Simulated scan of single mutants.
Amino acid sequence: MDDYTALGISNPTPVRIAYKPSSSASRQTVHFTGAWGSISNPEQVVDRDFAKTAQNAAEGPQGYTKLVGPLQRMHPSGLGDAVMKCQNVRSEVNQHTITTPLCVWADHYTFGEVLVVDPGALVNGGMGVSLGENADTAARIRADARAPR
């Protein structure tokens, strides 16, 4: 709760869920962490979240997880009035390097982080989905997560 308040979300109600595909053909897992509440400055919340992620990576074990590449503003279909930015996260998992896109959105009522993990990328030591694909997934989750006020 304090972390969400520090980002700029008043009266946050946190939520966390992992989605697994219904098809056995895809083994990707989508991780969604977020909150709803009152957000006066959505862009500031997104920027603070990425700054906190970068700080946590810098304070963590050497080479374990870090943000790589530029932070990009994204505009996927269905985003509406929300602010969304994405950046790749590089992690060391079982002596393999995996790069996974992290997308974060905020509007005046909701905040969410979406990370798509592709186990195939763990085996191959490469990239899972692209930033654009993850942004599309994040926009769909946002649309599903929002409730009429």
Rank of each mutant, 00 (worst) to 15 (best):
T33P: 00
Q28H: 06
V116A: 02
Q95T: 14
S26H: 04
Y109L: 11
N56H: 12
G34E: 05
Y4A: 11
P119T: 10
S10C: 02
P70T: 12
T65A: 10
A35P: 07
N11H: 09
G112M: 06
I9Q: 11
V68A: 14
V89D: 09
A145Y: 03
V89W: 04
R142S: 05
Y109F: 10
V45E: 00
V93G: 06
S22I: 12
D2L: 03
Q87A: 12
N88V: 01
V129I: 13
S26P: 08
V123A: 13
Q44M: 14
R27M: 00
A145R: 03
H108E: 08
P76L: 08
P76G: 01
I9N: 05
T65S: 06
T29N: 03
S40W: 05
Y109R: 15
S22C: 05
V15Y: 02
P61S: 15
V89C: 05
V30T: 05
T33Y: 00
N88F: 08
F32S: 02
H96N: 09
F32H: 05
Q28V: 13
N94T: 14
V15H: 06
E92R: 12
L79S: 04
T65R: 01
G128Y: 00
P42M: 15
I141M: 12
F32W: 03
Q72N: 11
T13I: 06
G128H: 01
A139D: 07
P148R: 14
S10I: 09
L131C: 08
S23Y: 04
L115K: 07
N88A: 10
C103Q: 02
C86Q: 01
G69N: 15
K85D: 10
T137H: 00
A147Q: 12
D81G: 10
P70G: 10
N56F: 06
P14L: 14
G126D: 14
A35W: 07
P12T: 03
S77L: 00
Q87N: 09
E59L: 08
Y19R: 10
A58N: 15
G37M: 11
V46F: 06
S77T: 07
R73K: 12
Q55R: 15
C103S: 12
A51Q: 07
L7M: 14
R140N: 04
W105L: 12
S22K: 11
S10V: 09
K85Q: 12
A6C: 00
V89S: 05
G37P: 07
S130L: 13
S10D: 14
H75F: 09
Q95L: 12
Q95P: 00
N56I: 13
N124E: 11
S24V: 13
